[in-house]
């Protein structure tokens, strides 16, 4: 197909008979994207290990990475259980934030008066630090898990709500006119125009809300100060600090960070999956 040469980037690209230098470069770029961060982190850990050893820093001040890893293995049973609790709390609150944020966002986008009436409440929820409301919620709600869930939900809910509202309103005006011209039903307009237009905004909110749900879950647990079997990573950190078990604190902290990174990676992957074929934010450009 000789004509396809004049139209770059189209699916009709000719099959390469020899290895395309472009593919080679892409492979190299992909390898670098994985190897470079891993190398940098390894180097930082090695430096940390070396400095702790070199200056003989006591482990109750700053433990060496190797000691943290050892603690992670030794205390795996209790840490894994706590991690599972935090994961459950985070994902549940994120799920509820998505449901609540999208539902309320749609109502706001459909009705300006409702938005004007209710938006202040959403803003108040957002601007009041969760750490300040958490004690109240813990008093009013007898079930600790539910109380923690509410706290995490409050933090994750707002970005989803506000981005859904903006997203649903961001549909191109000419496209709206076109839907009107062809007498689209309200449902068709929502399904084929408003939701696709809102997706980039929603995916951006999801990336933020994922991290916020984790922060909310950890902060709320700190305030609750719960102890015992059925508790999350924040409780392990608190507990270790009372007992002066610094390596265990670091181990729990490591798991919290890991959790945050995993959530970020998953939401980023989802965003690429949903928007990759069309939205500017996820399209790779050639230089």
């Amino acid at each position: 197909m000789p004509t396809s040469i004049t139209e770059p980037g189209l699916p009709a690209a000719a099959a390469p008979t020899e290895i395309d230098p472009r593919i080679l470069r892409e492979n190299r770029e992909r390898r670098m994207r994985i190897l470079l961060p891993i190398g940098a982190i390894t180097l930082a850990l090695a430096l940390w290990e070396f400095l702790v050893w070199f200056y003989q820093v006591p482990h109750y001040l700053i433990p060496a990475p190797s000691l943290i890893a050892k603690t992670l293995v030794q205390d795996w049973a209790s840490l894994a259980q706590s991690a599972a609790f935090t994961v459950k709390l985070t994902l549940l609150s994120l799920g509820l934030a998505i449901i609540g944020g999208v539902a309320l966002g749609m109502i706001f986008a459909l009705s300006k008066p409702v938005e004007m009436a209710l938006f202040p409440f959403a803003v108040i929820l957002q601007v009041t630090p969760v750490i300040a409301i958490a004690p109240l919620i813990l008093i009013y709600v007898s079930n600790t898990f539910v109380a923690l869930l509410i706290c995490a939900w409050i933090v994750a809910f707002f970005p989803i709500l506000s981005n859904t509202v903006i997203g649903l309103r961001s549909a191109d005006h000419n496209l709206r006119d076109m839907f009107r011209l062809y007498q689209a039903t309200p449902w068709q307009r929502l399904r084929y125009l408003l939701i696709p237009s809102a997706l980039p905004y929603f995916m951006a909110a999801l990336k933020i809300a994922g991290g916020l749900a984790l922060i909310g879950a950890v902060v709320a647990e700190f305030v609750a100060g719960t102890a015992g079997q059925n508790t999350g990573l924040a409780s392990r950190i608190l507990e270790s600090s009372f007992r002066n078990e610094i390596p265990r604190m670091f181990a729990a902290l490591f798991l919290v960070s890991l959790l945050g990174v995993v959530i970020f990676l998953i939401t980023s992957w989802l965003s690429r999956l949903v928007l990759g074929h069309w939205h500017e934010s996820e399209i790779k450009r050639e230089h």
Partner: peptide
């Protein structure tokens, strides 16, 4: 019975 062509192409970028 009416077709309308806008100033910009006005296509849905996701489709």
């Amino acid at each position: 019975d009416i077709g309308f062509v806008f100033q910009e192409a006005t296509l849905m970028p996701w489709a």
